[in-house]
Write a protein that binds this DNA or RNA. Structure first.
Ligand SMILES: [Mn+2]
Ligand SMILES: [Mn+2]
Ligand SMILES: [Zn+2]
Ligand SMILES: [Zn+2]
Lengths: 140, 140
DNA sequence: GGCTAAATGCAACAATATTGCAATTAGCCT
DNA sequence: AGGCTAATTGCAATATTGTTGCATTTAGCC
């Protein structure tokens, strides 16, 4: 829910503004990675206008609290779909339909950290995006 | 060696041109992610000129044969440092000094594939970049 | 040394992202 | 409800990154 994210922002002292709700709504409804300009275009279709700078700033804020993420393999942003899980948030992206699924696995993080440690590296964060086929597209 | 990469390109029917050698030289000498414009600037300092479009095209070509990679967390390109390993190529990037280390681990790939499969996803490629501290920077 | 397909340069443009400052607004306090 | 003020947004200008079509040059071959 948009309201959940808004409440988290308010708890941190940020205001519950109309532009923030609009961006959250779009991210929640369209569950595919969207660029700031994509979001602007979708809102324009709905008769709403936001400056792209505003959208950038809102996305930055959301990402800083892990309420949204930038998917680097496509450059778009998605709303976080996980809630109080352990381990870094990862994505699986379907090459065919663009569907995206987020997941986390604490043990996989641990294995990666151990592997890196053996190479002399102390890991603080993982970027992890898989591309392939979702179950729907695989049945073809 | 630059010559190794050049020979691989030639084996595929691509020419051993001066611009390609120049870009490979820079990537090999400066072992940090470099944007196409970074590369152009470094070459300019050396009295060489390449159009940025040319650099983009050369990097695309190198990446298509895994002779270089784009590091998405920084947007820069690095020369591939692995040779005939199994498993996808991954990166560890030091937050302090920017040092980058490439590695691969077939078993980690397998575990990731299995994990995704359990979520109904058929993985074809992994994007995997760790950020943290290299051993040198960790000793502080 | 000339021939030709491949590669590069050039110019124009498109997409993405950032900055400083003026105008607006959400939350708060009467 | 109305005013106050810091936070937020809009605007304008600019920077950075990436792409396209076509003219020019060059590597590899004879
Ligand atoms: Mn998440
Ligand atoms: Mn590699
Ligand atoms: Zn799919
Ligand atoms: Zn370091």
């Amino acid at each position: 829910m948009v309201q959940d994210s808004i409440r988290i922002l308010q708890a941190q002292g940020y205001k519950a503004t109309k532009p923030r709700k609009l961006v959250l709504e779009v991210l929640e409804q369209i569950e595919k990675p969207l660029s700031p300009y994509d979001i602007q275009g979708i809102l324009r279709q709905r008769g709403k206008y936001l400056n792209h700078v505003t959208i950038y700033r809102i996305l930055d804020l959301l990402c800083s609290f892990n309420l949204a993420h930038k998917v680097l393999s496509s450059g778009g942003f998605v709303k976080c779909s996980l809630d109080a899980v352990e381990g870094c948030h990862r994505f699986m992206v379907c090459q065919d339909c663009g569907a995206i699924q987020e997941f986390a696995d604490k043990e996989l993080c641990q294995e990666e950290n151990d592997l890196a440690r053996n190479l002399g590296f102390h890991t603080e964060h993982h970027l992890s995006e898989f591309s392939g086929l979702c179950s729907r597209c695989y049945e073809k």
